Computed example of a mutant assay.
Amino acid sequence: MIFFLLSCFMAAIAGSGEKPGYKKDVMKAFELRMSGKVDEAKVQLEQVLAKDSTNAMAHYEMARLNFYLLTGGGGTSLNDVNVHINKAVFYEPGNVIYAYYHAIIGFMNAYMGMEMGQEDKLKDNVIEACKRFEKVISLKPDYVEPMLYLVEIYGQLPPEMGGDSLKAVYYADKLVNADAYFGARARLTLSLQGTDQVTFWEDQIALNGRTPELLRQVGIAFLFKDNAEHAEKYFAEAMKADASQNLLMLDLGRYHVMKVMQNKELAATELPLAKECFEKYLNTKPEPIVPMKAYTLGLMARTAMFSGNQDEGNKLMEEANALDKYF
């Protein structure tokens, strides 16, 4: 999905009605952020918006930058993200990319509200998020990702929290007719509790072939069964078929770290496996972008420190911060 959204973002830059200078300036900010120069990217966007406060593209990129800072301890809040993405969709309401990110942030509003104990606002926040996803679909009726969000939200939440089983089935049926892979994900979301996910996805492979997406899902299903060995085999096959699936190796490393978080007695066996996965990810092609390199080095630093290798951990942390201090 990351690569799909990035390609759509590039298309929006090429085909939108922005002033030519601002296209270039906003793209420069994006490139700065992707190279780890987040503060410089923010200054660049502030300059663009100082010249034209109605620049929807700049507001969209500023929203994404602020969300990145939020996750990296950069002193921003979810409100900072909301301010800019709200302006992006206000100034360019027909842009499906901005609308989709607007919906994602709407979902984050609901999730963060729940995490903060704002139960009285949860249903309203969920309803608002769903309205935003439905808006995306009105702009692009065959957009499967927002449909899947609606299946998951409507299908997994109880009515008092904004769930709606009939709407979940409605969007699941649309997905089944639109796309085999997303249709399968929708059906699994609404399947009976206890459904064997490995069997489910292996059946999909039998029907549709060994596609990278299906191989990835079988691997994930094996992780849910704590079978990392089988998961890695499927992940490796998925990455061989599609190099952009290399994030799976990072996810596998994070799985091993999670095992230690659940049971510290597993550190001696799980952390070396995590380190191996992180190193493999850093050596994959296409080469990971700078923020992901920094994030991975940060994980390696923490695992080293947890293992008692303080010097190694400090060195790795310095490398991570040198790449992107907001990782």
Rank of each mutant, 00 (worst) to 15 (best):
E40R: 07
A88H: 04
A63I: 12
D124V: 04
L148R: 04
I104M: 08
D164H: 09
V96N: 02
F30D: 09
H59N: 12
L78Q: 12
K24I: 14
L49Q: 09
A50G: 00
Y111T: 14
S53V: 13
A110S: 10
Y111H: 14
P158N: 11
A88M: 07
K131L: 06
G36V: 09
L148H: 11
A41E: 02
G163C: 08
F133S: 00
I105F: 15
R132G: 00
A129H: 03
D80N: 14
V89G: 07
T54L: 10
L65G: 07
G155C: 04
P146H: 05
K28S: 10
E119R: 14
H102Q: 12
Y91F: 15
G162H: 08
A56R: 03
S165G: 00
V26A: 00
Y100T: 03
V48A: 04
G113C: 08
F133I: 01
N125R: 11
D142Y: 03
Q47A: 11
M116N: 14
K37H: 14
Y100P: 01
E134K: 09
V96G: 01
V96K: 07
Y91E: 05
R64I: 13
L45V: 06
D25I: 01
A58C: 11
N79H: 13
Y60E: 10
E145G: 01
S165L: 05
D25C: 04
V81G: 06
L78R: 12
E134W: 02
Y100N: 03
V43C: 03
N82H: 15
A58D: 08
G117I: 10
N66P: 01
E119V: 14
N55K: 06
N109M: 09
L150F: 07
F67N: 13
E115D: 12
R132I: 00
P146L: 08
D120W: 13
H102G: 06
E119Y: 13
N125I: 01
G36H: 08
